[in-house]
Computed example of a mutant assay.
Amino acid sequence: MPRDLRAALLAVHGPARLRLAGPLDDPVAVLRLLRDGGRTPLGSARELLDELREFGLSGTAVEMAWWRVRLGELGVAVEVEEGFGRAYRYVGPPELRERATASGDPGPDGRAVRTAVGRPVRTVVGFASWADGRAAEEFVEPFTFVVDLGGALRLAPRRSEHVACAGGEPVLSAGEIGFRRSGGGGWEVGTVSNLSTGYCPDVVSWPAVAAALDRLGLPHPGGFTQAVVFRRCTGCGQCGIVREGHYVCVFCDADLPERWNVDEVAVDEVAVS
């Protein structure tokens, strides 16, 4: 389906996740299906196969139902789960998204495939490998992060754009995260926020962040240490940050709504389509 419509569906209904419900006896046949059925390069198909094996694939409910049928034809037992909360699509400048995420490989729609610069960290071992590859001075500043639709933490240097970190895809949360050594010599999360002016995630996206960190065995504060409240003004249309509980637009002094409304247009797009 068109990329913008897919992002709107994910924003409104949230992602569904397809997981293996039994052994994968013929990975070569599944790899071929992922390559041909998804019309993706072989390297990308291998990544999808690894993701399916480890945590499952994520996307719209229709996409995951389609994959369940096709995998079922190969005798692969899978199940589809829903209810993973809201997905947030990119709401920043379009030109920034195109500049940050375009690569040379054409996708099924003829457009350039977007490649995420954020390093996906899905396991305890994976995080240790990522951390060991960083210089000590890199940990002075927090890192850019997103939680992708599969629930994995993706990390990039602080000055990276969140949309590039996510490869232009919708996310379950986004912000900045700081790590530090714990008393036992391991790692823990010192600071974490939902500060992302590209995705403007709501503070209620914290459970997705907590789940990603728990998967990595990283102790964390139990909530955003800097909880940023984003709102879009219904008067002038500008998106801004609510400071000190003062729900007034800094651009036109109009009252701001109490509930998150940054991407209300997603509902209209789905209804029209």
Score class of each variant (00 low, 15 high):
2 P>Y: 02
3 R>A: 13
5 L>W: 07
9 L>F: 03
10 L>D: 01
11 A>H: 06
12 V>S: 02
13 H>K: 10
15 P>R: 11
15 P>S: 11
17 R>F: 10
22 G>K: 02
25 D>S: 12
28 V>G: 03
29 A>N: 04
29 A>L: 04
30 V>H: 07
30 V>L: 07
31 L>A: 08
35 R>I: 07
35 R>M: 13
35 R>F: 07
43 G>V: 10
45 A>Y: 08
46 R>Q: 15
48 L>V: 00
50 D>T: 12
54 E>N: 11
56 G>A: 09
57 L>I: 03
59 G>M: 09
63 E>F: 10
64 M>I: 08
65 A>P: 07
66 W>Y: 14
74 L>G: 12
74 L>A: 10
79 E>S: 14
79 E>K: 13
81 E>P: 01
86 R>A: 10
94 P>L: 05
98 E>L: 13
99 R>I: 00
101 T>A: 10
103 S>V: 02
103 S>W: 12
105 D>M: 01
112 A>H: 04
113 V>I: 02
113 V>N: 05
117 V>A: 02
118 G>E: 00
122 R>A: 15
123 T>V: 10
126 G>D: 11
126 G>Q: 08
127 F>H: 09
132 D>Q: 11
133 G>Q: 08
136 A>M: 11
137 E>A: 13
140 V>Q: 15
142 P>V: 11
149 L>P: 02
152 A>G: 02
157 P>L: 09
163 V>W: 03
164 A>N: 07
166 A>D: 00
172 L>F: 08
172 L>W: 03
174 A>S: 12
175 G>V: 04
175 G>Q: 04
177 I>H: 07
178 G>V: 06
180 R>H: 12
181 R>I: 10
183 G>H: 08
187 W>Q: 05
188 E>G: 10
189 V>S: 05
194 N>D: 09
195 L>R: 14
195 L>H: 14
195 L>T: 07
196 S>I: 05
197 T>F: 01
200 C>G: 03
204 V>A: 15
206 W>Q: 05
206 W>K: 07
209 V>P: 00
210 A>H: 05
211 A>M: 02
215 R>W: 00
217 G>W: 00
219 P>E: 06
228 V>P: 08
230 F>M: 12
244 E>K: 14
246 H>A: 13
247 Y>K: 06
251 F>L: 00
253 D>V: 01
253 D>F: 06
253 D>L: 08
258 E>W: 11
260 W>I: 02
264 E>Q: 11
264 E>R: 13
265 V>Y: 13
268 D>M: 07
269 E>F: 13
270 V>T: 06
273 S>L: 06
